[in-house]
Amino acid sequence: MSGTAAGQQLWAVDLRGERPARRLTADTGDSRFYQTQYDLVVAEGRVHWVAAGPDDDTEVRSVALTGGAVRTRTVEGSWALTGWPWMVDGLADVSGAGRLRNQVTGEERAMPATRLSETACSPLWCRAVSLDEDGYPKIEVVRTDGNDRRLVARETARTVISDVAVLGRFEVFARVTAASELSGRDELLIYDIETNRTVRISPEATDVWYRNGVLWWSTGNAESFLRHALDLRTV
């Protein structure tokens, strides 16, 4: 996706360099991106995304990888795409995700609720961020069927990426420490659902991102910094 003076355009690039980049469409609508790996989903020979629709509804849009006319359907609610073929509703709600819907079969699932929490969900896991009895942040993960709730972290923990339980296994978060209060950089950690343990990735990190199995972050300062990457698919 690229922005121009005329608006946003969707392009495809051949990473092997055998063909030049080509524009798929400029008919993107009022597109909505939530800084997740599912903002653009490639599936069934098409690129899928969402846009703001009329009356606070959502337009689910797609275009063929070869370009052409855009298919658009409007659904009631505030939806975002997640792991294909699912999408998740409730982005405009204070409590966050409320249900999943399968775009192919139409199946819907109500998401598990946590009292006074903000919830984000993938097809497998939900992340609930709430306050504990002492008023400190608490991060939990729970399967979308409501089972297997896990405490990930509490006290000074905070989320740093939008994606939930990446690869169905790793919940990425940060923790404010005494050192990070001085440096402005937080401790970067991963909770491994499979082994039920937490691993420190970096004692200080900023500008944390995740896409397609790879986590990356920066250390140092604005004048001298290093960029790091970790391929979680190899763990």
Rank of each mutant, 00 (worst) to 15 (best):
E171R: 01
E107S: 06
A43K: 07
T144S: 06
R233T: 00
L182C: 02
A120H: 15
E171T: 03
Y210D: 03
E108T: 13
V42R: 00
V41L: 11
G96Q: 02
A174M: 02
L116T: 11
E155I: 09
L226F: 12
G184H: 12
W84Q: 07
A92H: 12
A21G: 11
C126S: 09
R61H: 04
I161M: 08
L167T: 13
R211G: 01
D186P: 14
G184E: 10
L65K: 07
S224N: 11
Q35V: 00
A97R: 11
G146T: 10
P20V: 10
N212Q: 12
R211D: 03
T28F: 11
I161F: 15
L81Y: 08
G67R: 03
T119A: 04
V47C: 08
L100N: 04
R143S: 10
A174D: 06
A12P: 02
R154P: 00
R16Y: 03
L151T: 15
L116P: 05
G168T: 06
F170S: 04
T28G: 06
L24R: 09
G90L: 03
V214F: 08
N196A: 12
V172M: 13
P54C: 07
V208L: 08
A179G: 06
E171F: 12
R46I: 03
R149M: 05
A5F: 00
R127H: 02
E18L: 05
S62E: 09
G29C: 09
E107P: 06
E140Y: 00
L232V: 08
G45F: 01
H48W: 15
S183V: 01
F173Y: 05
D132S: 09
E181W: 01
S202E: 08
T25E: 08
A113Q: 14
D55T: 08
R101C: 05
Q8F: 10
D57S: 07
W49A: 02
R101L: 10
T74Y: 14
V142P: 09
T219G: 09
V199P: 15
F173R: 02
R185F: 05
D39C: 01
V75M: 11
G146D: 09
N147D: 05
D39P: 08
A52E: 14
W216A: 15
P203S: 12
A6M: 09
S122R: 00
V142I: 13
A157I: 03
